[in-house]
Write a protein that binds this DNA or RNA. Sequence first.
DNA 1: TACTAGCACTTTCTTTTTTTGAGTGCTAAT
DNA 2: ATTAGCACTCAAAAAAAGAAAGTGCTAGTA
Lengths: 336, 336
Amino acid sequence: MDERKNALLKEIVENYVKTIKPVGSKSLCKKLKCSSATIRNEMVALENLGYIEKNHISSGRVPSELGYRYYVENLMKPKDLTGEDMLKLQQIFSNNDLQVSDTVLKCMEIISDLTNYTSVVLGKNSSDNYLKQINIIALDSNKIIAIVCTDKGIVENKQFVLPSNTDVLEIVKTSEMINKMLVGTPINKVSEKLEFEIKPIIAKRVKDYETIYNIFYDAFNDFLLHNTNIHVSGRVNLLKEPEYEEAKDIKRIASKLEDESFKEMVKSIDGNEDMKIYIGKDSNFDDNVTVIKRKYKTGGEEGTIAIIGPKRMEYERVVSLLNYMVNRLEGKNERK
Amino acid sequence: MDERKNALLKEIVENYVKTIKPVGSKSLCKKLKCSSATIRNEMVALENLGYIEKNHISSGRVPSELGYRYYVENLMKPKDLTGEDMLKLQQIFSNNDLQVSDTVLKCMEIISDLTNYTSVVLGKNSSDNYLKQINIIALDSNKIIAIVCTDKGIVENKQFVLPSNTDVLEIVKTSEMINKMLVGTPINKVSEKLEFEIKPIIAKRVKDYETIYNIFYDAFNDFLLHNTNIHVSGRVNLLKEPEYEEAKDIKRIASKLEDESFKEMVKSIDGNEDMKIYIGKDSNFDDNVTVIKRKYKTGGEEGTIAIIGPKRMEYERVVSLLNYMVNRLEGKNERK
DNA sequence: TACTAGCACTTTCTTTTTTTGAGTGCTAAT
DNA sequence: ATTAGCACTCAAAAAAAGAAAGTGCTAGTA
């Protein structure tokens, strides 16, 4: 890959991203300062390397997945955000009324809007939440609600139907004990402490302590596990992309976007990187899309953000947007 | 509309619903026990009445919107649920672990699944919630959370950032007062009582009472207003229907399903009826769909359910499913 | 050796033409 | 009132023709 091949591949990718038309040799003469014949020769070389492909024997060239990958890894340069992109995002951050988790969602909505891709936020209560308080409210003789609140201001509640002979007062007693002893405990350590510190104590003081222990155990577990929030913005943006012009493509992708299993796809990033770009088959979602994933962590919540777009995505722009956003989110955090 | 015309129209609608092909005169000979020529004569009559249409001069007949309407109002017979439909729904109702609001959602998921249409639930906390308790939790010196809980077990919370000179203790004091005086008040009457019963009292006892009053006012208002939950199931089902085979149809409808404004469409049913069927243009959503709306009310929540499908919907089946479901929901309520 | 000009050849996309088939409307007979 | 028969219409499928874009290759040039 000499200098000119790099330039040529970059040109092909960026041209194709812009026009969505296979790019022919003639159109690049000016940019590369040589004749179409020379370019054709170089193209043959790039094709042998697997970076570009033809749809048919006599059509222009299109980047292959390998080509995009090479572009992403070697050719693209992180750009500064353009004025408009920057402005829109700043509006979100300057709104102090929003709770942090809403800020994430708002940002992704904006990014979806700006780029016309689909974005997904998969967040859960992060492990740096500390127990602030647990409340028990009796609704009637056999139904209670347990409300868990953390220092980051995240509140979850769960209803329980009690076995008929359970005494609500005992439950309240236990909750007071928990409040005294466990406030300030990291939320993911609560179950553990509950078992080894609280359980032995209530075993002596509270009758029917097994039932009661289980209620609290469930309540805390719910907080950690159940609460995986998924939020999709601009679901139809992806469908609007012109390459999905056949009904069956649209239906297939729409159906995948609806499917529960695509949570799995977003869930985690392989390896330790903060950001990763999955092109085509790598995406584990659909051969015709690119997925860019980015980890985030802020204000009691952590998770992954994913942008789903066509393979001919505006890579530079999306990467810049995501980076800017996550940096601001974390910055906001520190400032607190 | 004599007997035979009714039978013919019914046959045409049901045939078309099943096959999605314009129905020709020949295919109905056996069913109606007469020759194709006779049927053609009758068809001309039905066409003049506006109940059926032709795509072109020489194709079979298709029901018009008016035809569907006539069918829905005069021809269709409420069917008993088939074994499978019944079974699937019963599974939901027999699961006692679900909270009521989840039951509604689960039901709609099942109905979406069974019918392959899209369903929407638009629910909000109903006015028959009574205040059970309000809790104030101080997160740090200038941030608090107010948690409102009702007798039906609905819990909402809202965070407030306090002006720097506010005393949290005063807020807690006020909340205790509210708990003493307003527990048992219908949630939509709380704001009123707050203003006329509580405000005069705290005005004397609490300094900076305006700020504090506003916090509680906001918290209760949020409970009523903000909390309009919308839930869409089987968004892509609609797109799968074979009549939407052009990309532009699919994109248009997908885009409407994503749009916020379609909440409005679901919101209410004109008039006092519990159920209403909107066909085509009437739907206020898209000329090519039918929307069936049904009110429901259960366990602290009330709202509207809508089924969105093609105009050639399986009307009888959907109506039966919805009726069965709402009856069970209300039944479950009474049993409590 | 590296580049370029020129040209025949491919392949798709678009447009036009042909063919096929389902279904109608009308007329005349039962 | 119903039916059989037939000419006619229109859409959808298949086939044919034409236009455009771009390639590969050969031969010539600096």
